[in-house]
């Protein structure tokens, strides 16, 4: 299954339209798209507007490849479950987000194992192809942060609780 997700905040029709065209062109049948409040309704993908946090995690777990905006919820969940990930960053100038931080996120993650960046929707097909080739090779992230970080936070919390 291919899972397309735009996250919990703003719509992202550019990704949904691009993936719908991709699914039609390639004759891909098993594609699920989470489209939020988008105006464009896909004709070649199953779609839902929102997923609970639990159903979102399950959809990532069931996916061969995840195709998403460059949001940290998706990045961390796909990393933890070892799923190859294609990222299309949202662009502020096109009203897709309030800042261009997703471009920074995409640039930072660009060469990490299991992450494939599509800078524009025209790059989606190539990135998906590369991600599929990676298969289960995507790195599996530990479920928690570096103990040095959580340890320092814990010490501060215990100090405040005194």
């Amino acid at each position: 299954m291919i899972f397309v997700t735009i996250g919990s905040m703003f719509p992202f029709d550019r990704l949904i339209r691009g993936m719908d065209a991709w699914a039609a062109e390639r004759g891909e049948r098993d594609v699920l798209a989470q489209i939020g409040d988008g105006a464009y309704l896909p004709r070649h993908m199953r779609h839902v507007r929102r997923l609970s946090q639990a159903d979102f995690t399950a959809s990532v777990a069931n996916a061969d490849v995840v195709i998403a905006h460059a949001g940290m919820g998706t990045v961390i969940t796909a990393g933890r479950l070892g799923r190859p990930l294609v990222l299309l960053p949202r662009i502020e100038a096109w009203g897709e987000h309030t800042t261009d931080h997703q471009i920074a996120t995409a640039n930072w993650l660009r060469d990490k194992p299991g992450v494939f960046v599509a800078d524009t929707d025209a790059d989606l097909n190539e990135a998906i192809h590369a991600a599929r080739g990676a298969g289960g090779a995507a790195g599996r992230l530990s479920p928690v942060a570096d103990p040095a970080f959580t340890g320092r936070l814990r010490a501060a919390i215990l100090d405040f609780l005194e």
């Binding site: 919990s8 946090q53 940290m72 479920p143 919390i157 609780l161």
Partner: peptide
């Protein structure tokens, strides 16, 4: 302690910090 985060990526990040809250 109250641990609070918006849904999506904020919550997923908070969950990665849970060892800081163990047993509290």
């Amino acid at each position: 302690v109250m641990a609070i985060a918006s849904g999506g990526g904020h919550w997923v990040q908070l969950m990665r910090l849970r060892p800081a809250l163990d047993g509290l």
